[in-house]
Amino acid sequence: MGAAVKPGPGQMGETVLDLQRLLTMANQIGDFFAPYPPERRAEGIRNHLRTYWDPRMRQDLLDYIASGGDGLVPQVLEGARLLVETEHDKKGYYGPPKA
């Protein structure tokens, strides 16, 4: 599961962050948006990932989801799906979370 192990000198791990840490961060975001109605929930998570996460972290999350996504709360999966679906439509992604 990812790159919890330190790479040797000159080597780089598979993911930018330790995967467990990345998943914890994703689930925390999911927990915040949980009380919102489903559509806004997914949008909120997508916007957050798009605006605040290094793109390599986003890609690592998407790769993990593609390989099964175990342990992620359902709304993170919804947000990630929306992130992929609207990848080329970047307008309106940025900014603080919209209520």
């Binding site: 080597q11 780089m12 791990g13 598979e14 930018v16 330790d18 840490r21 996460w53 290094d54």
Partner: peptide
């Protein structure tokens, strides 16, 4: 055009060699 790493994530990424 993309956000970079936050301070704690820089340290996290140092541990993975990135």
């Amino acid at each position: 055009a993309e956000p970079g790493l936050r301070l704690p994530n820089m340290f996290d990424a140092a541990l993975t060699g990135h």
